[in-house]
Nucleic acid binder design. Structure first.
Lengths: 181, 181
DNA sequence: GCTAATCATGTAATTAATTACATGTTTCAA
DNA sequence: TTGAAACATGTAATTAATTACATGATTAGC
């Protein structure tokens, strides 16, 4: 059997993105550069084979188009079966807390005393990183959701961007709590 | 070559845990049940083969012991080379922001309008989940770090537990912001 | 007109991680 | 005393994910 594993979440992300609008594999790969990339990552080398399997499974179909003289594109669309699968997934409970895989936090864990001279530089480095990320997310919010109407039209997107902003704000606050200068 | 990939972080976690005290593979697997499990997960089926490879690489060694009549145990210890590798890893910058892979947030992203009736039940489910986790972490903090001296002796552990608590507290606050009842 | 960036699609090789299979010992509680 | 839970170690099979290899077209700027 060449079926798709139960916990492969990328397939659902692809279904969700194609439900927003028909897209190419290239477009799907680029989607991870915006907010959804805060919560999942995938390379084109994982996406193209998965699109093939999902099409074989009857969840999506594609239409061949040509851009310019001869640049071939495959525009993928949801089938009604794919749409059903997406709705089922969103409707299911999500009872799992996935570990966050934060390498800095892992390193902190192995530091024994508060006198360790590595702590403060590490905190400063992370503060810079998360402050930069916070600034980036805030400017994204201003450009993507400048009006109340924009919020309305992509409410889920607004929510997860707001969540990412709060997360970074709180991370910065936590780091500041332990910074001595 | 049967070398270990550059980004395999589990090896560093194992080095760090063995630096705390000599342990068996079984002990290492159990370690993910406490706070470090909030930030990484690994099964014994991944740990045992990795211990073998790390020993082949000269980073750790083991001593065979027997518990009771004949229960064989392998007590692993860091070599000085393994200790160096741990120190190098902790001292390196950690400039990567890893996506958090929160399935609930992924689902939210695909909800179009604030009138969608699925939103409120989903928020309530997550609130229950994260409130339970927050309560658990707070009680862990009370039992593991009852005194200031306890904090001193495992400061990194204290920091990451505090971080996990703040994270859950903030998650609960964020969910509450969008709950209408 | 050139050239770099971006668009576009794929495969191959490897590593990381999960789930299932497999076996045996010791301890604790009913 | 017996049965379940926990201790203890491994391998096999599969899937997920990353990195590298591979090719070609179009667009935007110099």
């Amino acid at each position: 059997m060449a079926s798709i594993g139960q916990r492969n979440r990328l397939q659902y992300i692809i279904l969700g993105l194609l439900n927003q609008r028909p897209q190419t594999g290239y477009d799907l790969a680029k989607a991870f550069e915006n907010e959804i990339g805060e919560f999942w990552q995938a390379q084109h080398s994982q996406i193209y084979p998965l699109l093939r399997r999902m099409e074989d499974a009857g969840e999506i179909t594609h239409e061949d188009t040509v851009a310019g003289e001869k640049l071939a594109k495959k525009q993928y669309t949801l089938t009604s079966s794919g749409h059903d699968k997406l709705v089922d997934w969103v409707s299911e409970p999500s009872p799992e807390l996935t570990p966050s895989k934060d390498e800095f936090i892992l390193k902190l864990y192995f530091i024994k005393t508060d006198a360790d001279p590595r702590i403060q530089p590490m905190l400063r480095e992370q503060l810079r990183l998360h402050q930069t990320q916070l600034d980036h997310l805030k400017s994204r919010q201003e450009t993507v959701f400048p009006t109340a109407a924009a919020k309305q039209q992509a409410y889920g997107h607004y929510l997860i961007l707001d969540h990412a902003i709060e997360r970074e704000r709180d991370y910065v606050a936590w780091l500041s709590k332990y910074l001595t200068d």
